[in-house]
Computed example of a mutant assay.
Amino acid sequence: MDPSRIQAMIEAGLPGARAQVEGVDGVHFEATVVASQFAGKLPLARHRLVYATLGELMGGAIHALALRTLTPEEADAGDS
């Protein structure tokens, strides 16, 4: 599995989202996802939104996905 494909799927499934995905072995990945859809949601709900964009790949072609999920406001606050 290619990290750029995962990034494209996340960004397509969460319109307006920005995703950065890394993974060197093709099955274990780390992603930072910034999306307005995360506003007011707890981390588990945010992760479920991301997992939903990847469907059956989770647990199959994607063995593990470590997530950092932020709203745009949270991402901007971290940049300062």
Rank of each mutant, 00 (worst) to 15 (best):
A52R: 11
A31R: 03
Y51K: 09
D76N: 13
R5I: 12
E22R: 09
D2Y: 14
L67K: 14
A77V: 06
T53C: 06
E73S: 13
P15L: 05
P3R: 04
A12Y: 12
K41A: 13
L42M: 15
I62H: 00
S4E: 15
S4V: 14
D79P: 14
M9I: 15
G23M: 02
V27S: 12
L42V: 15
G40L: 09
L14K: 01
L65N: 11
A52F: 09
L70S: 00
A31Y: 03
A66S: 10
G26M: 03
G40E: 08
G26T: 01
L14H: 05
V34M: 00
M1L: 07
K41S: 13
E11I: 05
A8L: 08
V27Y: 12
G23Q: 01
A77D: 10
L44A: 12
S4F: 14
A8Y: 08
R48G: 10
L14V: 03
R48Q: 15
Q20P: 04
L65P: 09
M58L: 08
D79G: 14
H28R: 02
Q20N: 07
Q7A: 09
M58V: 14
A61M: 11
L57W: 07
A45R: 03
P15H: 07
V33N: 01
Q20S: 12
T69L: 13
A75E: 11
D79V: 13
E22T: 13
A39R: 10
T71H: 09
E22G: 10
V27C: 12
M58S: 07
H28S: 03
G59D: 10
H47Y: 11
A31P: 05
I6R: 00
F29E: 00
T69I: 14
A75F: 13
V27H: 13
G26K: 02
K41C: 13
R46C: 15
H28P: 01
S36Q: 11
V21L: 00
V24R: 05
V21T: 01
V27N: 11
D2R: 14
E56T: 09
A17G: 01
R68T: 08
R18S: 15
G60M: 04
I10L: 01
P3E: 03
F38I: 05
L67W: 14
L49M: 12
A45Y: 00
T71A: 10
Q37Y: 04
V27G: 10
P15A: 08
D76C: 14
L70T: 01
F29Q: 00
P72V: 07
F38T: 05
Y51R: 08
L49I: 04
Q37L: 05
E73D: 15
A17D: 02
L49Y: 06
G16L: 00
F38H: 02
P72F: 04
A8T: 08
G59N: 11
R48E: 15
Q7W: 05
S4W: 14
T53W: 02
E74I: 11
G60Q: 08
Q7E: 12
K41L: 15
V34L: 03
G23W: 00
A66L: 07
Y51C: 09
